[in-house]
Lab assay of single mutants.
Amino acid sequence: MPGGGPEMDDYMETLKDEEDALWENVECNRHMLSRYINPAKLTPYLRQCKVIDEQDEDEVLNAPMLPSKINRAGRLLDILHTKGQRGYVVFLESLEFYYPELYKLVTGKEPTRRFSTIVVEEGHEGLTHFLMNEVIKLQQQMKAKDLQRCELLARLRQLEDEKKQMTLTRVELLTFQERYYKMKEERDSYNDELVKVKDDNYNLAMRYAQLSEEKNMAVMRSRDLQLEIDQLKHRLNKMEEECKLERNQSLKLKNDIENRPKKEQVLELERENEMLKTKNQELQSIIQAGKRSLPDSDKAILDILEHDRKEALEDRQELVNRIYNLQEEARQAEELRDKYLEEKEDLELKCSTLGKDCEMYKHRMNTVMLQLEEVERERDQAFHSRDEAQTQYSQCLIEKDKYRKQIRELEEKNDEMRIEMVRREACIVNLESKLRRLSKDSNNLDQSLPRNLPVTIISQDFGDASPRTNGQEADDSSTSEESPEDSKYFLPYHPPQRRMNLKGIQLQRAKS
């Protein structure tokens, strides 16, 4: 015994090295194993092979420090690593049964499904019991997946119906949107047309105001020219009257000059006056001389005659003075006559000038009245044309509004008919989907599995289990394997941990 101590140590070291070499393959693929292994699927088989106990299973599945599946799978690998070579062998058998691809990844061999460990530990009855539990578990999982698949199909059909409904609603909204954009385009076109009409109206108003201003300026210029013409006519008439007055005065002077006595007659009258003065002096001298030589009687007679002569001279002087006064009065009367005649001529000139001015103003008033009548006639014609244009424009607008209203009513009726057609199509689609759903539900009910399987069917299934373990590994792997896509769409199922009653199965096998 003492001599065998070193050999035992060498043997233990060799086993430990082999164990480390075995687990080295697992550690190399630890990331892939932790990512894809579900500990809840492996722990029943590991407990059946007595590699882990209930406490280890509870620690792996329910520990609060292991929230994710990767953490739980890593903890399970750590626990199996502590179990040595047996933990490695049982772990590979569980991978061979549940995850053939991972088994091939770790060992590089094809899975054979021999279950040597569980046969050694529990015997064939334990293997049968384990396989029966796994089959029931798989059936329950398949039923749950079928239910989930039916629910998802129903949800899918519902979503398809909602999608069709949303599509129809979208078509309806597109119809309304198209109608909205069309009405918006019509409104924009009408606004552009309105702005264009306003611009045209403004341009016409500006043109009309400009023409009116030009016409008023032309009328004012015409009036100024007419006033200048009238003033020139007035000056012409005044000059004609002055010329006529000057002509009359010149004719009067000419007549006075023609009626003036001649120079010879004046000289002859002056000679006669001198001769008479000479004779008068001679007679006076004779009379003076006679007075001195005459007697007293003759002197008395001469005195009487002288007195008579003096009286006659006085009378004559009075007559001469009277004649002079009369001549002066006649001259003054002639001057007054000439003055009055001049005033008369001036008044006649003024009267004729005023008459011509009156005629001029009368003509001017007639011209202004004619212009006013023409302006009123043009204004009435413009008003009439404007009223006709406004009436025609309003009539066109009324007809346009009428046609637009008819078009809008027809478009609304068309839209309502399209919407009604879309709604009826939606109703038809809904009815078809309901009919299809009812038909599929009836087919699913016919094809669904019963909840409680008979014992004979279970025994028959387990009677055929042994050949399947040898020759149909691919079928078992397809039913027991969970793909990543299934984990996305289906909830994980945790079967209840219970042991099955095998009395009925044993009785059935005894009868057979």
Rank of each mutant, 00 (worst) to 15 (best):
G4P: 08
G4A: 12
G4S: 13
G5A: 11
G5C: 13
P6C: 11
P6G: 12
P6H: 07
P6V: 12
P6F: 12
E7W: 11
E7F: 06
E7T: 12
E7N: 07
M8Q: 10
M8W: 10
M8A: 12
D9S: 13
D10P: 14
D10T: 10
D10Q: 10
D10E: 14
Y11I: 11
Y11V: 08
M12K: 14
M12A: 10
M12H: 08
E13N: 11
E13L: 13
T14M: 09
T14P: 10
L15V: 09
K16M: 14
D17M: 07
D17Y: 13
E18N: 14
E19V: 14
E19L: 13
D20F: 07
A21T: 10
A21D: 06
A21N: 02
A21Y: 00
A21P: 10
A21W: 02
L22W: 07
L22G: 05
W23K: 00
E24K: 06
N25I: 04
N25S: 11
N25K: 14
V26R: 04
E27K: 01
E27G: 01
C28Y: 04
N29I: 03
N29M: 02
N29R: 03
N29A: 03
R30L: 00
R30G: 00
H31E: 05
H31T: 07
H31N: 05
H31A: 10
M32C: 04
M32Y: 07
M32A: 07
L33V: 11
R35I: 06
R35P: 04
I37P: 01
P39W: 02
A40Q: 09
A40L: 04
K41F: 05
K41G: 06
K41S: 08
L42S: 04
L42K: 02
T43N: 06
T43G: 05
T43W: 04
P44A: 06
P44E: 02
P44V: 03
P44S: 07
P44R: 02
P44Q: 10
P44C: 06
Y45V: 09
Y45C: 06
Y45D: 06
Y45P: 06
L46N: 07
L46C: 09
L46G: 10
L46Q: 12
R47Y: 05
R47M: 08
Q48M: 06
Q48V: 13
Q48P: 05
C49T: 12
K50E: 10
V51E: 07
V51L: 10
I52K: 06
D53R: 07
E54P: 08
E54A: 09
E54L: 08
Q55I: 13
Q55L: 09
Q55F: 13
Q55E: 12
E57I: 06
E57H: 06
E57C: 05
D58Q: 09
E59D: 03
E59A: 00
V60S: 13
V60H: 01
L61I: 06
L61G: 12
N62H: 06
N62P: 08
A63N: 14
A63L: 02
A63K: 14
P64M: 13
P64T: 06
M65V: 03
M65A: 05
M65Q: 00
L66E: 03
L66R: 04
L66A: 05
P67L: 11
P67W: 14
P67Q: 12
P67S: 08
S68E: 05
S68F: 04
S68P: 03
K69P: 03
I70A: 11
I70E: 04
N71D: 04
N71G: 05
R72L: 02
R72S: 02
R72I: 05
R75Y: 00
L76V: 01
L77T: 02
L77R: 02
D78P: 02
D78N: 00
D78G: 02
D78A: 04
I79H: 01
I79D: 04
I79L: 05
L80P: 01
L80A: 03
L80S: 01
H81D: 03
T82M: 12
G84A: 05
G84I: 00
G84E: 04
Q85G: 10
R86A: 15
R86Q: 06
G87I: 02
G87F: 03
Y88C: 07
Y88S: 09
Y88R: 06
V89W: 15
V90L: 06
F91N: 03
F91E: 03
L92P: 08
L92R: 06
S94M: 05
S94R: 02
S94Q: 00
L95A: 04
L95P: 04
E96M: 09
E96N: 03
E96A: 00
F97Y: 00
F97L: 00
Y98I: 13
Y98F: 10
E101A: 04
L102I: 07
Y103R: 00
K104S: 00
K104L: 00
V106T: 03
G108N: 09
E110P: 05
P111G: 00
P111I: 09
R113N: 06
R114I: 14
R114K: 04
F115K: 10
F115S: 13
F115T: 09
F115M: 10
T117V: 01
T117E: 15
V119H: 15
V120A: 05
E121Q: 08
E122Q: 04
E122K: 09
G123T: 15
H124N: 15
H124M: 12
H124L: 07
H124K: 13
E125T: 13
E125F: 12
L127E: 06
L127I: 15
L127R: 05
T128P: 12
H129E: 07
F130C: 15
M132G: 13
M132N: 01
M132D: 07
M132W: 14
E134R: 14
V135Y: 01
V135K: 13
I136H: 02
L138Y: 00
L138N: 10
L138P: 08
Q139Y: 10
Q140M: 09
Q141W: 14
M142C: 14
M142S: 11
M142A: 12
K143Y: 07
A144F: 10
A144G: 12
A144D: 12
K145P: 06
K145I: 10
D146E: 12
D146N: 13
D146G: 12
D146H: 08
D146A: 10
